[in-house]
Nucleic acid binder design. Structure first.
Length: 477
DNA sequence: CTATGGCACGGATT
DNA sequence: AATCCGTGCCATAG
């Protein structure tokens, strides 16, 4: 039913121009946040495009009353728990962060820490904006928009200076202040800097063991290679004492301030939910009751329905010559945008519904049940080009029923299931297994991978090699 | 001598 | 065409 409607739309599309294709691809590639920026931009400069507050049911497309749910779709019907509902959800409470400063700074809420659904730049910005002068805000915005996934700064200070025409000292100053925001150390240029910021922060409230700061700042390389004995020699302390220093660092400091699943390995007590990203897709159980059908909401960031302004359409008939041409262009552009957005939604919808069908047990029961899957497979099933799926998946994030926000590409992670089994084995091991033994364990569970690969997976999960694990267990016991 | 990490190669994936 | 991933080989530390 739903499918028939969308497919109908799909087929009645006028022959695709190259502009069509180009724009569809770009839109598909964008996250919901970027999409909103694009829409806002187009709205502001194209008089032919209009946003009306008419609400339409995301499920059936019918007009909605000004308040409340769709009269038809909300009728209780018998829900098959195996059914999955996918729909496009227009969100109007969407907070924009754009690199462009002035607009977004005005509307931070009184309590900057309460919001749980912000992306990282916004989250940090809200903490620090009040204490910054106007020109400093520009710098802050520039810094925050150039963080990588781990929360580390991915561009050069020099670049910022060149771009904004400010002296490096000023940028440094702002950067230092940003690093003191939650998550502590965010915006650091490298891991070492992040750690130092965290050390400073901790030392304000509690005791930091001797040597910690010195070791991090002077012998970080050696430390990351676990060169304990050499370090101990250099600082003239015993090896166990140096281990203490190292333990303090691994227990209390986080080398990647914003790493998505930080703490699951080293800090099991700190089960901080991931709060920094506005997801592009939400997956949850109907009424949040496990066992109910899954609902998949694809976030469509607009407060209403986009359409061509009918007045503008009317007015164009009375125009002639150059004006007429110009207006015609506007209309074409607007209708192209609308069509492409529909197309994007259509693709996302189909993608998510297939994805949910295939990875249902992963969504409900966790990482161990992830089916190996490639984008190409999905592309074939949906009869679209591989690159379409690639673009639809790229940079997007999904919130699972357990409130974890994961990158959409995780649905296609070929080794995640194996890695979780590996983690499982290690956490239950009677004594620290070495990599060869681990390989044998996996083999007995029907997974055959090379010994070298075991080591790689271990490293990916941040698990120390066998001989060092022994010490950790001893220390915590 | 053993366990592990670095480098690089080839095939698969995007 | 570019990138990612599993793997084999080899050097090195313990």
């Amino acid at each position: 039913m739903q499918l028939a409607r969308t497919q109908g739309q799909y087929q009645t599309q006028s022959p695709m121009t190259s502009a069509h294709i180009a724009q569809t691809m770009t839109l598909l590639y964008m996250t919901s946040i970027e999409l909103q920026q694009t829409i806002d931009l187009e709205l502001s400069k194209n008089p032919a495009l209009e946003l009306i507050n008419e609400r339409r049911c995301p499920m059936c497309g019918r007009k909605l009353p000004p308040e409340g749910p769709c009269l038809i779709c909300s009728q209780p019907k018998t829900m098959d728990p195996d059914e999955t509902i996918v729909f496009i959800s227009p969100k109007d409470d969407f907070f924009t962060f754009s690199g462009n400063t002035s607009s977004s700074f005005e509307d931070y809420s009184e309590d900057p820490f309460s919001s749980t659904n912000l992306d990282l730049p916004t989250y940090v910005l809200r903490q620090i904006a009040p204490e910054l002068a106007l020109d400093e805000r520009e710098i802050a915005a520039m810094i925050l928009t150039n963080l990588d996934d781990d929360g580390l700064l991915s561009i050069n200070i020099a670049e910022i200076c060149r771009y904004l025409h400010v002296p490096p000292s000023k940028v440094e100053d702002v950067l230092l202040r940003i690093q003191r925001c939650e998550p502590i150390g965010v915006g650091a240029r490298n891991v070492k800097e992040a750690l130092l910021a965290q050390i400073d922060h901790i030392s304000e409230t509690s005791e930091v063991p001797d040597y910690v700061k010195q070791v991090v700042s002077e012998d970080f390389d050696l430390l990351s290679k676990h060169g304990f004995s050499e370090l101990a020699r250099k600082y003239r302390i015993t090896v166990p004492k140096m281990k203490n220093v190292s333990d303090f660092i691994s227990d209390n400091l986080n080398p990647f301030p914003a790493r998505a699943n930080w703490g699951t390995v080293r800090n099991p007590n700190d089960s901080k939910p991931d709060v920094f990203n506005q997801p592009d897709v939400l997956i949850y159980y109907l009424n949040n009751k496990p066992g109910n059908p899954l609902i998949i909401e694809i976030i469509m960031p607009s407060r209403g329905t986009l359409r061509i302004n009918p007045l503008f359409k009317k007015a164009i008939k009375e125009q002639t010559g150059e004006k007429h041409e110009e207006w015609k262009k506007d209309i074409d552009k607007a209708s192209l945008l609308i069509k492409c957005i529909q197309q994007r939604n259509n693709t996302m919808q189909q993608l998510m519904s297939r994805l949910a069908a295939i990875q249902k047990s992963f969504i409900m029961q966790g990482e161990m049940h992830l089916e190996p899957l490639t984008r190409a497979q999905i592309a074939e099933e949906l009869e679209v080009h591989e690159s379409t799926i690639s673009r639809a998946v790229a940079n997007k994030t999904v919130q699972l029923p357990n409130k974890k926000i994961i990158p959409m590409s995780m649905f296609f992670d070929r080794s995640l299931a194996v890695r979780t089994i590996l983690k499982d084995i290690i956490s239950n091991e009677p004594h620290p297994y070495n990599d060869t033994e681990l390989q044998a364990q996996l083999e007995s569970q029907g997974i055959s991978i090379a010994r070298r690969t075991v080591a790689k997976y271990r490293a990916m999960e941040g698990i120390l090699p066998a001989h060092l694990r022994r010490i950790e267990k001893f220390a915590t016991a």
